[in-house]
Write a protein that binds this DNA or RNA. Structure first.
Length: 277
DNA sequence: CCCCATGTTCGACA
DNA sequence: GTGTCGAACATGGG
């Protein structure tokens, strides 16, 4: 589920406990969630430490405990972070729960594509510092996008937008939203977007969708956002129409189409997104 | 029962 | 080495 802004939203759920001590950790997860860090080791490293801070980048989060313990989280397809009352009874897929004196912080993931990583050291782990420049940063220029498209010239732009090495945090619905706003057909070969007017449009829309999502979904700059994702997304986005039966394009009023492009189900508006290079 | 799902990774192959 | 594609992972909902 979680893409860029949704990840930031979840990070904030846990970040309310910044400065608080983790009194207890409860681990209840299959080994695959913990990958390289055995559950017991994670528990031991974090218990008794103070949550110092956290960051989100792309689809990952990094929480820092005490001086030198770092917990990396990837939410996979269905992971989420929530706050709960101390008395809460962990449900089947609540794999990892941190208890402060005041409340419980829950990591749940029923599909178990999520991942949890432990790192100990004075500095953040290397995988974190090596993540691609955020699409909202100054380093994410039109030229960078154009060069990347040139290298993936034959691949459909939809598939290229999903590549985390260049478009960190963009997932299936953001990619569809971007192409819809840019009026680009999702099957367009990326090479057609290596330069020119449509490259400029694509670059602009990537940043626009990311920025809008951070504001509307993550609540950056607005303190209260509803919890349900669909309630946070404005009606005039493609998002709220894309899986709806009989969904229609907010621009044309014509039916939306669903097709597998670049290995993923893609929703688009044929009459609106006619440009294909 | 079948198909589908907001993701990543790995192996096969051109 | 590079790039592309499909399968696999695990689970629940329609």
């Amino acid at each position: 589920m979680p893409e860029l802004a949704e990840v930031e939203f979840f990070r904030r759920q846990w970040d309310v406990a910044r400065g608080k001590r983790v009194e207890r950790v409860r681990v209840h997860a299959p080994a695959r969630i913990f990958r390289d860090a055995p559950a017991e080791m994670v528990k031991e490293a974090i218990e008794g430490k103070i949550l110092r801070g956290s960051e989100a980048q792309a689809k990952q989060m990094l929480f820092r405990f005490g001086e030198d313990v770092w917990l990396g989280l990837h939410l996979g397809m269905a992971g989420r972070l929530e706050r709960a009352a101390l008395e809460m009874v962990p449900a089947k897929h609540d794999h990892f729960v941190l208890y402060t004196a005041a409340e419980a912080l829950v990591f749940s993931d029923y599909r178990m594509f999520g991942k949890l990583e432990l790192h100990c050291g004075a500095n953040a782990p290397e995988w974190w510092t090596r993540l691609a420049p955020p699409v909202l940063s100054d380093a994410f220029t039109r030229e960078v996008v154009g060069a990347f498209c040139a290298r993936r010239a034959k691949a459909p732009i939809k598939a290229v937008l999903l590549m985390q090495e260049r478009f960190p945090g963009i997932g299936n619905w953001m990619a569809d939203e971007i192409l819809w706003r840019a009026r680009i057909h999702p099957a367009t070969p990326a090479g057609a977007l290596a330069k020119g007017r449509k490259l400029a449009e694509l670059h602009r829309r990537i940043r626009e969708v990311a920025g809008d999502a951070m504001r509307e979904i993550a609540g950056v700059g607005s303190p209260t956002v509803p919890h349900a994702l669909s309630e946070r997304v404005p009606e005039d986005w493609l998002f709220n129409h894309r899986w709806r039966d009989g969904g229609t394009c907010p621009q044309t009023g014509q039916p939306l189409v669903r097709e597998e492009i670049g290995g993923r189900t893609t929703c688009f508006s044929p009459a609106w997104q006619r440009w294909r290079g």
